[in-house]
Design a binder for these strands. Structure first.
Lengths: 328, 328
DNA sequence: ACACCAGCTGCAACCGATTGCACACTGCCA
DNA sequence: TGGCAGTGTGCAATCGGTTGCAGCTGGTGT
């Protein structure tokens, strides 16, 4: 059985209150007493029970993280960032995976909210109203999604898409296909929007296909539709889709980048290893997780603080072998 | 503010004890009363505070999961399995990532152990003694590692390596390189052992290189040493290493499988997408996570149960394009 | 009519911490 | 010597649940 506060108190020859104070407000207790307590703590290997502390202070030192799919490298990176930042502040992280299910999302947040101080909600598929309903109860920080009145960190999708289009147009491409992701995805919407703006600006044309699942299989499924559009370049919802697309194109004997240039989004580790290596918009993933936790912790420390703090991260075009000049 | 037990009691017009019992031992309370309580719970959207319950019962409904690196797809799959199984039993999961650091492992388990009912420890890098020290305090189930007296689920590495060698020998290979993973990895040890046995049995020769990090970069670093051995086939610690190796071989103009056959271990999603697609030993990953949680929950339900329950999962050879007949 | 039992329900103690308040002690000044 | 501030400590209440025990009720057996 693990040692409790009272065990420490007994060993140190003081009251439980004193031990508690020695650990949480050291300035309040005499140096000599404090030393005795420290010795007792050491001897017993005591560690406070966070749950009990949480009951009183309303602060458990625990946050939740909800992601659509842990097997997607994008989300494991974000998770890793959250993890690392949380550990630095001695905060534990509950992780839950919704399997891309918007309903599960809402109910998971509900359940989690009783046991954590706040929640990092990553790429939620739920609608804005659901989101707002959730956040009335709970401290939530969004990642990869922006919503009025909810703090969060998201990516500048418009800018990213502009970079992609500028790159492709410079290579001579005029008709660009767009493989849209899940219909309920905020990123799908904003990337599509960014693309439309960008092609207008550069006098190119956009050929959207989809929606497709944000997976390798989704990319395989999209490939033939992309080819059918007659576009000479394609931007995909994310890298996983791009890599699936690459595979199907290869199977059909369509050469990348000679016959078709491919641009992904995310820059997951796999993308540099794909053949041809994938040109993509690199999104800072761990950083997003880190910032989200920062935001959440600040928010918790001072609840009345600017509730609508939002951070936007820029993506960065990484040119690799999957894009090339338009074949004349 | 979330509703408490007493709020429900007030609304239902009963005492807190009755509400508690209505929720945890329904048979003990009158059907009519139970219905009133249920109505009140519904109306208030009440959910019990697990932390408080945990204080009394010593059971928090929470388990911990410790993995070396969440960004490694092998571990995200295991995590996903753990996650899914835990959710089915209404158990929450703390996830912690050690960044491949054995010391962090021990301290993380220590910290976690105060807040969870038990811990799933995946591919620990710590030594056997440390492991046993940990488990004296805490309910721990191992994944991808076996240790005396600690329950867990691991893979039959000997058998997997035998399958790999049998496949390669059948293709005519007689000298097989082995890219070893981290020195402290249990898998490295057992896969190496299995390989040595297998090559003896099939009258082939083994050429070990390494140790290398279990990553893409590790594989790139290993490639040249593998080539230098003069082996015509290679088995790598895991798929990530194999894929890195593939990349470096490609860069050096060494054709796979004509000049060198490559076999990985794990069968992560990426492996099917590699070019050439990777022949590998498929390890059931989500299943391992699922079984580990099963084990842990059984253990918690009945602490005196066979403490040394161990499950061994078989890997299965998946033949793809990265292996072929030895070039005469 | 009385004892008894079973089935429900409530009282109150408890889990392991935190914290407002009161009290004890010291030292200093008048 | 008395008063007073300041520091350090302990008492007891509290958080949100659970649970042993006792009490109440109504029905049954004799």
């Amino acid at each position: 059985m693990a040692a409790t506060l009272r065990d420490v108190a007994r060993v140190a020859g003081v009251s439980a209150s004193t031990v508690s104070r020695a650990l949480t407000v050291p300035g309040m207790v005499n140096a000599a007493t404090r030393a005795r307590v420290a010795a007792a703590v050491e001897q017993l290997g005591y560690e406070p029970n966070r749950a009990a502390r949480g009951l009183i202070t309303g602060r458990t030192g625990t946050i939740g993280l909800v992601v659509p799919d842990l097997a997607n490298p994008f989300f494991s990176s974000v998770t890793k960032g959250v993890q690392a930042r949380a550990r630095r502040s001695d905060v534990a992280v509950f992780v839950a995976d919704t399997d891309e299910d918007a309903a599960a999302e809402v109910s998971l947040v509900r359940t989690l909210s009783k046991q954590v101080d706040g929640i990092v909600l990553c790429s939620p598929r739920a609608g804005d109203e659901d989101l707002r309903a959730i956040t009335s109860d709970t401290n939530v920080v969004l990642v990869n999604r922006a919503a009025d009145g909810i703090p969060g960190v998201s990516y500048d999708n418009e800018d990213g898409m502009r970079q992609a289009v500028a790159h492709l147009v410079a290579l001579g491409h005029r008709k660009i296909a767009w493989v849209a992701g899940p219909a309920t995805s905020w990123s799908t919407e904003h990337r599509g929007f960014g693309l439309r703006n960008a092609v207008d600006k550069y006098r190119a044309k956009l050929a959207p296909v989809g929606n497709f699942a944000p997976t390798y299989e989704g990319g395989m499924a999209a490939a033939d539709q992309v080819v059918a559009t007659g576009a000479t370049a394609v931007v995909t919802y994310n890298d996983l889709v791009a890599i699936g697309l690459l595979a199907r194109l290869h199977a059909r004997g369509i050469d990348v980048p000679r016959d078709l240039s491919v641009v992904g989004v995310d820059d997951i580790a796999m993308s540099g290893m794909a053949r041809p290596a994938l040109t993509t918009i690199r999104l800072p993933k761990q950083e997003a997780g880190r910032i989200a936790v920062d935001l959440l912790l600040t928010l918790l420390a001072d609840p009345d603080q600017a509730v609508d703090t939002r951070t936007t991260l820029r993506g960065e075009l990484v040119v690799r072998a999957s894009t090339g000049p338009k074949n004349p």
